[in-house]
């Protein structure tokens, strides 16, 4: 009896150790729908393949469509990867959800993250950033019929807003515009678009380029971005702490600014929405890499 119980404990420990080992070995392990393009991709920096974390659910930025990936973040990531000597086929795309990004970098499950990742002080403490490669700003997406009545955050009195629960944009609305507005917080932006079209909310709020992507995805021209951003979000390339890639990534991004590919990528991904990025801040000046 005693022996068999001991054996059971040992067995359970061994199973647990195996499970942990599995977590370490697989890049982005546990993410369903992960696409492995090369058999040799390992997720280790400097290996043959390159593992890049992106959003899978943001049309126009990072979007999984069957086994292809589209969007501005994907385009920038591909350009940078090619400048680092990897072909597009070498890249393994994994999903980097907002709440998981720091953890994925700290555990080196990914080599880089291009996922509407704003550079902030608290994030800077735990991970490295290259870039920024884009400056977005919080803005409003409205029904085109309301163009003229909703012109910016100051015209929101008595209006209903939608944003993703817990996001910086939702918090800003709660903190600064709570007086005259009501907020619906949902799990994803597609639910917000539904509420906007149904008329239960008057505006969806988050970063302007995300809104432009959503409007382009909706496609009918019924939705439009107001175009008066009221915050500054510096989208950076998330790198594992101490990553040697920062300088190279910055060089690649600068090359992308200079040869026109950056502008072309923005235009291609926001086509038909009339969206133009804030010209005063874009293209942004790159930060120095930390030593």
């Amino acid at each position: 009896m005693r022996r068999s119980r001991l054996t059971m404990v040992a067995g359970a420990l061994a199973a647990g150790a195996l499970a942990l080992a599995g977590c370490q070995a697989e890049p982005g392990g546990g993410d369903g729908g992960e696409e492995t393009t090369g058999g040799d991709s390992t997720g280790d920096a400097g290996g043959e393949g390159l593992t890049i974390g992106i959003k899978f659910d943001q049309p126009g930025l990072g979007f999984q469509d069957g086994d292809t990936y589209t969007g501005f973040d994907v385009d920038v990531a591909t350009y940078v990867a090619e400048a680092l000597g990897h072909s597009a086929d070498d890249i393994t795309w994994v999903e980097a959800q907002s709440a998981n990004r720091e953890t994925m970098l700290e555990n080196e499950q990914v080599d880089m993250i291009f996922a509407t990742y704003s550079i902030t002080d608290t994030r800077d403490e735990v991970v490295d950033f290259a870039g920024p490669y884009f400056v977005a700003g919080q803005d409003l997406l409205i029904r085109s019929d309301d163009a003229g009545t909703i012109t910016g955050p100051e015209s929101l009195d008595g209006k209903n807003l939608c944003s993703v629960s817990g996001s910086t944009s939702a918090q800003r609305v709660k903190d600064e515009y709570a007086e005259g507005t009501q907020l619906v917080e949902v799990g994803g932006y597609s639910e917000c678009i539904l509420q906007l079209i149904q008329g239960t909310v008057d505006a969806v709020t988050t970063d302007d380029i995300i809104l432009a992507g959503l409007a382009a995805d909706e496609g009918s021209g019924a939705l439009q971005v107001v175009g008066s951003p009221f915050s500054e979000e510096n989208y950076g390339v998330g790198l594992p702490p101490g990553s040697p890639l920062c300088e190279d990534v910055n060089e690649a991004i600068q090359a992308m600014f200079d040869d026109g590919a950056w502008e072309a990528a923005i235009e291609a991904n926001t086509e038909g929405t009339g969206y133009t990025p804030n010209a005063d801040l874009n293209p942004p000046t790159l930060r120095d890499c930390e030593a």
Binding site: A99, E102, S165, T168, Q171
Partner: peptide, 24 residues
């Protein structure tokens, strides 16, 4: 019910992780 737009502890946790990424 965080999925139903009720602000409670799960929402607050998301906000905290969004703002204080160094303490996930």
């Amino acid at each position: 019910v965080a999925a139903g737009s009720v602000s409670e502890i799960a929402t607050l946790m998301r906000e905290m992780i969004e703002n204080e990424s160094n303490y996930v």
